[in-house]
Write a protein that binds this DNA or RNA. Structure first.
Length: 913
RNA sequence: GCGCGAUUAGCUCAGUGGUAGAGCGCUUGCUUCACACGCAAGAAGUCACUGGUUCGAACCCAGUAUCGCGCACCA
């Protein structure tokens, strides 16, 4: 326990502390008076490390993150997009999970019972690949050396050892996840649910097995869904070669292809029956060039799928290795010759010369062979799109194989849910993308030829087949394939919850995820939600942008441009990282990462720390600050008015997930309005123990900090919690005695304040601050060093009280500011026109009529330009007649103000002559 | 081919019809009594281009250009 609730000081030298205690040390050159006896150390800079870890532990110990399904409070829930067990925390996770944490923390403060459910995904291909690689490296073995059972055992071991790394990292980030409910997509009950869903969909006739053309990954040796194939432009060659027509020897047909290595799989040539060049050839045959020596005759067929604009208008048909060709083959009942092995090498059907060769080597050899045979016409450079396996990053092969497919359920319901706003997307432009995908949806290939994953719950005995969760008996063997990982993830929002939890927390409130998994995950969850819970699984979906490096490239391991998030947390603190990242994260747009921004986040934390430290140095704060009964100076009313506006702005922005607007609002208010202006303006009164305003100002600071810490908490949870405790604040609580359970703030304005009085005070303050700005400007013009105090004289334009003058002098860096309506300045005394009146800076050596005239002339020119602009606008009758009256009035006011200012400035210049 | 987004200060980005903004960087001054992870002042913009709508356009509409993305095609 800390010995003193009012001390911000925990880190620093004990020696200094002792001196401080005695009130004799000069820190930064001034004497610090210890406020209370037990104050020990003062740390000028906020050091996040210890604060963050200790608070996380305290929250955990107090069960702050645990959701109670029996709570009477309204429920608010989010399920984490489960990271891969292989995953480590990258910067995208930081963004994504910080946003979820913000929503969860704010919901607690607005009185909700919050469940934020953690977990991870078994990530079939990714995980299996990683473990296989390790196995190969450390033991020189393949998974086949171990066998299925031993291998999956190894994956489990690996998962236990490395699978929780990311959870530790999420803790470092401060994520308020309910760790008592951590789930894994291969937990026993979860797996059972997956199997039950499979069986159910099978029984409904939505799942079927069939031999079809699928995307095959020759590295992972498994089928892939269409979504796992990424098309990339590839530079290659378009080979033109000719074949002889059997019936009319000596005549040839020219064919264009990018894949000469599949010629031995050709079982026809196809032309468009409407193509006048070739239609008469339909029914004839040609000699197939490869494999060499066979010279098989294959038919020329007519099919409308052939585009006669492309290439030569003649298509070689390879039913075993191309989707379109396969369909043509079906229509014409063509033979299917599979010339490729699953691993992408040529099969024996390709002929002796090619068998065993890798497909790309075979392509080269095929082209060379054609050339030797004298049938190669040309090979021209060509760029086309090739489908790549998302995981293995190699071209996929279309391959005919026996797979399990799902005809998606609830497609129309799911489309309607987003169309009619039952589910809302932020930003909403993703709605169109979603709709388009569902409109053109194809059956989903859900079987994978992997070992790591949910086994397909189908059993065989002889020619019999049964689809059920449990084995029908020892003499039955289970289907060898596993399910696509997403076939389990799509159940995530409800399969992770028991009955009581479901009742309280499903459907979930919001989903935060990247748009890159809109089809993989979001759309499918919606369908599963309707199919199994009869309801949309979430209300709102917020799509984060993709984080790119400073050159705009995607973060990737191979580029090595991904920042180390733990290192960032170490350097800037989790709060700094969170805040810095969020401040630059525009809604749904991609983000260019720049470490400078994170540094800004840390700096903001430090600013907050020091502002609170400053308050603390003035004496204890009220636990529940209240301004009733205080006569508040204008700058107090002003800052309260600004804070009131901030509270409203933030509440509004949360409604549509405008996180960076909230962030920016918090930043601007605190740094500029509170620190730069309010605190600075208050210093004269605070330093003067006799000032009648001192208490009101300190109390106003308390109200501002008491409110602001709550507003900021979701973004910077650790530092705010620390300061809340250190300043000794309390608030109405939604449960536990922590800031994280404090009631979300309403308006900070005291009930007794009238709106009119507030507006007047804010206007007066604005005039005062504007005058300060003018005064500082004048100082800078005359190169007065910042630390040099000057004497000022004000010829006031209205009556001013002592408090205002003291504030003004303090902010303007004046030794003294005399108010004198009859002041007669020496000719050439620097002077500036402020909202408070004419302000003179009678400083020896600066009096120079010529310089002053020049300076004022410039000001006059500027003002005249502005005035002319305003007048021009007002002289336009179209504007005056058509614009809204308040806009016209505004311009009239501007013109009046500029005219008055111009007149005064002219007088000031004349006085110099 | 269809669709989506972006284009504003040197950089990263805010800005939903009425006086062009922030942070960083830059220049100048400052260890001024919370903070140099700081304070103050300053320079810096044809809001990609062309038309249109409007009294008025960075903003709305149409088109063009460049960059990025998705879907389809991909012999």
């Amino acid at each position: 326990m800390r010995c003193c609730r009012f001390s911000l000081a925990k880190r620093g030298s004990a020696k200094n502390a002792a001196k401080l205690h005695a009130g004799i040390i000069k820190s930064s050159g001034y004497t610090v008076k210890p406020i209370i006896d037990c104050m020990k150390e003062l740390s000028k800079a906020y050091e996040p490390r210890e604060v963050e870890s200790s608070w996380y532990q305290r929250w955990l110990d107090a069960g702050c993150f645990t959701a109670d399904p029996k709570s009477a409070k309204p429920g608010y829930s989010i399920v984490i997009p489960p990271p891969n067990v292989t995953g480590v925390l990258h910067i995208g996770h930081v963004l994504n999970n910080t946003l979820q944490d913000i929503l969860a923390r704010r919901a607690r403060m607005t009185g909700h019972e919050v469940l934020w459910l953690p977990g991870s995904d078994h990530a079939g291909i990714a995980t299996q690949t990683v473990v296989e690689r390790t196995l190969r490296k450390s033991e020189g073995k393949t998974r086949h050396d171990l066998g299925r059972e031993a291998f999956t055992e190894r994956v489990w071991e690996w998962k236990e050892k490395h699978g929780n790394i990311i959870f530790g990292q999420l803790r470092s980030l401060g994520c308020s996840l309910d760790w008592s409910r951590e789930r894994f997509t291969m937990d026993e009950d979860y797996s059972r649910r997956v199997a039950e869903v499979f069986v159910d969909l099978y029984n409904k006739g939505l799942i079927y097995r069939g031999k079809r053309m699928v995307n095959w990954c020759p590295v992972s040796l498994t089928a892939l869904s269409d979504e796992e194939v990424i098309s990339k432009p590839q530079k290659g060659l378009l080979y033109h070669f000719k074949v002889e027509i059997v019936e009319t020897p000596g005549t040839f047909l020219e064919i264009a292809t990018t894949r000469p290595e599949t010629i031995m799989g050709d079982t026809a040539l196809a032309v468009n029956p409407a193509d006048p060049r070739y239609k008469d050839l339909i029914g004839l045959h040609v000699r197939r060039a490869l494999p060499r020596g066979t010279e098989a005759a294959i038919p020329i067929i007519g099919d409308e799928a052939v585009d006669f604009e492309f290439g030569t208008g003649v298509l070689k048909v390879t039913p075993a290795h191309d989707k379109v060709d396969y369909e043509i083959g079906l229509r014409h009942n063509l033979e299917i010759i599979d010339v490729l092995n699953p691993d992408g090498t040529m099969s024996s059907a390709a002929g002796e010369e090619f068998a065993g060769l890798d497909r790309f080597a075979a392509r080269k050899l095929a082209a060379e062979t054609l050339e030797e045979l004298g049938t190669l016409v040309k090979a021209e450079p060509y760029e086309n799109n090739v489908g790549f396996s998302e995981r293995a990053d190699v071209p996929v092969e279309p391959r005919l194989s026996e797979q399990w497919f799902l005809r998606y359920p609830q497609v129309e319901t799911s489309r309607d849910a987003v169309r009619n706003g039952t589910i809302r997307f932020f930003p909403d432009r993703w709605e169109k993308v979603y709709d388009h995908w569902l409109e053109n949806i194809q059956d989903w290939c859900i079987s994978r030829q992997l070992w790591w994953g949910h086994r397909i719950p189908v059993w065989y005995r002889g020619g019999e087949m049964l689809c059920q969760v449990d084995s029908p008996g020892d003499d039955w063997t289970q289907d060898g394939d596993v399910l696509d990982t997403w076939f389990s993830s799509w159940l995530w929002p409800f399969a992770t919850m028991d009955e009581a939890t479901l009742k309280k927390f499903h459907p979930t409130s919001a989903l935060v995820t990247g748009w890159d998994i809109l089809f993989f995950w979001v759309a499918r969850m919606i369908m599963a939600g309707y199919e199994y819970e009869n309801v949309a699984p979430f209300r709102d979906v917020y799509f984060t942008g993709m984080i790119r490096d400073h050159k705009g490239r995607k973060m990737s391991k191979s580029l090595g441009n991904s920042p180390d998030t733990l290192e960032l947390i170490g350097k800037y603190g989790a709060d700094g990282l969170r805040f810095g990242l969020l401040r630059i994260a525009p809604q749904g747009a991609d983000i260019r990462f720049d470490e400078k921004q994170i540094e800004e986040g840390r700096n903001f934390g430090n600013k907050l720390w020091n502002a609170c430290r400053y308050r603390q140095m003035q004496g204890p704060s009220a636990a529940r600050p209240d301004l009733d009964g205080f006569d508040l100076p204008i700058q107090c009313l002003n800052i309260l008015g600004k804070l009131d506006a901030l509270v409203h702005k933030i509440d509004d922005a949360y409604g549509t997930y405008r996180f960076n607007e909230i962030c920016q609002g918090l930043y601007d208010f605190f740094w500029s309005d509170y620190c730069d202006w309010f605190v600075e303006a208050s210093k004269p009164a605070i330093l003067n123990a006799d000032s009648p305003d001192r208490d009101a100002i300190l109390k106003t600071m308390d109200v501002v900090l008491h409110t602001f810490l709550r507003l900021l908490h979701p973004y910077m949870p650790h530092i705010t919690e620390e300061l809340w405790e250190t300043l000794g604040f309390e608030a109405d609580s939604h449960g536990k005695n922590f800031l994280m359970y404090a009631a979300w703030p309403g308006s900070p304005l005291p009930a007794s304040i009238e709106k009119q009085a507030l507006t007047a005070a804010m206007q007066q303050t604005a005039a005062l601050y504007e005058s300060v700005y003018q005064a500082r400007n004048l100082r800078a013009e005359y190169r007065i060093a910042s630390n040099q105090k000057v004497n000022l004289v004000l010829k006031p334009s209205r009556e001013l009280n002592d408090q205002e003058m003291a504030t003004f002098s303090g902010l303007a860096g004046a030794k003294e500011c005399q108010v004198n309506s009859d002041f007669l300045p020496e000719k050439g005394t620097p002077v500036v026109l402020t909202p408070l009146g004419q302000l003179f800076m009678p400083l020896t050596g600066l009096v120079d009529p010529a310089a002053e005239r020049e300076r004022i002339s410039k000001e006059i020119d500027k003002t005249r330009d502005e005035l002319e602009k305003a007048r021009k606008k007002l002289s336009n009758s179209n504007f005056v007649d058509n614009a809204p009256p308040e806009v016209v009035a505004e311009h009239q006011q501007r013109a009046t103000d500029f005219a008055a200012r111009l007149e005064q400035l002219n007088k000031m210049r004349d006085a110099l002559d």
